[in-house]
């Protein structure tokens, strides 16, 4: 298959490009690497676009823009020797992928990503970088430490990485080739059957049901609600307002609470444990170093009282 050959060739080209970009002393090949990498990514996407039309529509132009931003940001993130820049480029990657999420109809996750990642986690990283970063030489505050300036075993890592990429892509496309062009049809807005309150308020807002009437059940397939009223023996079918749709937050919420409630609880427990762990690690008994605290707790001894020697 020609497309796969192009993709493998692009993997090789991308590997070479990334190799040029990785940090080392006196790197003069960065531009060539960038061009090579971008060319490789473009070639791979073009090769994908050549695939049979029957397998569906192409993503729109935003995908390409955001995708290039994400990949570019990621490459810069690992190739920039300065940790602060790396963190900032990562924010760029997060923002680009948030844009891709919006493209994919996951608005809630897009914003959650920005808030949690870009807003919380990355800021923590920046704090830590600032806490832990030091200049190797006091007279040159901008000088890089040796471990930041030089990548370690770049060739082996790049080869392994791109072999893995080639293998993964080969596997993925073999797998997706057997998928139908579109997932089997499913009832749109099926979640509304569970979101009776949402239908109720929408219908009341559109004056489709009277104040004393209540919704008995919702039929998403026929897009109707069965309404009981005190005046009638039989519930009557009322059509929804046309604008009533399940939005992204509704879908995620229903999925989270109706399908994975236990996992949600477990996630909460994990977060709490992480918090406890962070507290334990960060705690520093008076008069002891942080390292002493680790040993102290590792030995299972009780923390010493503040003030004691």
């Amino acid at each position: 298959m020609v497309e796969m050959s192009i993709i493998y060739a692009a993997c090789v080209a991308g590997a070479v490009g990334l190799l040029f970009l990785l940090p080392r002393r006196g790197n003069r090949w960065g531009l060539i690497g960038a061009v090579l990498g971008a060319g490789a990514l473009g070639a791979a996407m073009l090769a994908l676009a050549r695939v049979d039309r029957a397998s569906g529509d192409h993503p729109d132009v935003f995908f390409y823009i955001l995708g290039f931003i994400a990949v570019g940001g990621a490459v810069r993130m690992i190739s920039n020797p300065r940790p602060v820049y790396a963190a900032l480029y990562f924010i760029l990657v997060v923002l680009a992928s948030a844009g891709l999420f919006v493209q994919l109809g996951a608005e809630f996750m897009a914003f959650a990503l920005i808030i949690v990642y870009a807003g919380a986690i990355l800021i923590t990283y920046l704090f830590v970088i600032m806490l832990a970063q030091e200049a190797p030489d006091d007279r040159h505050p901008d000088a890089l430490t040796e471990y930041d300036a030089i990548a370690r075993e770049p060739i082996a890592a790049t080869i392994v990485g791109f072999v893995l990429l080639g293998a993964l892509l080969g596997m993925m496309y073999r797998g997706t080739a057997s998928l139908p062009a579109h997932a089997p049809h499913h009832v749109a807005d099926a979640e509304l059957a569970l979101l009776v309150g949402k239908v109720d308020s929408a219908m009341r807002g559109a004056d489709l049901i009277k104040p004393r009437e209540t919704i008995d059940s919702v039929d998403p397939e026929a897009r109707i609600a069965w309404v009981t009223s005190p005046s009638l023996d039989q519930p009557r079918a009322v059509e929804w307002p046309a604008g009533l749709r399940v939005d992204n937050v509704d879908a995620v919420g229903v999925s989270l609470l109706a399908e994975f409630p236990v996992s949600l609880e477990v996630a909460g427990v994990i977060l709490m444990l992480a918090m406890l762990g962070a507290v334990v690690l960060a705690r520093k008994p008076a008069g002891a170093t942080a390292q002493g605290a680790v040993q102290h707790f590792a030995l299972g001894a009780r923390p010493r009282k503040a003030g004691s020697p």
């Binding site: 990949v71 993925m172 997706t176």
Partner: peptide, 22 residues
Amino acid sequence: SVLALNHYLLLSGVLFVIGLIG
């Protein structure tokens, strides 16, 4: 569509490998 999915998967794989190499 599957075609678009493939694009996203390519992007995902590339980002993953870049992260790995990093």
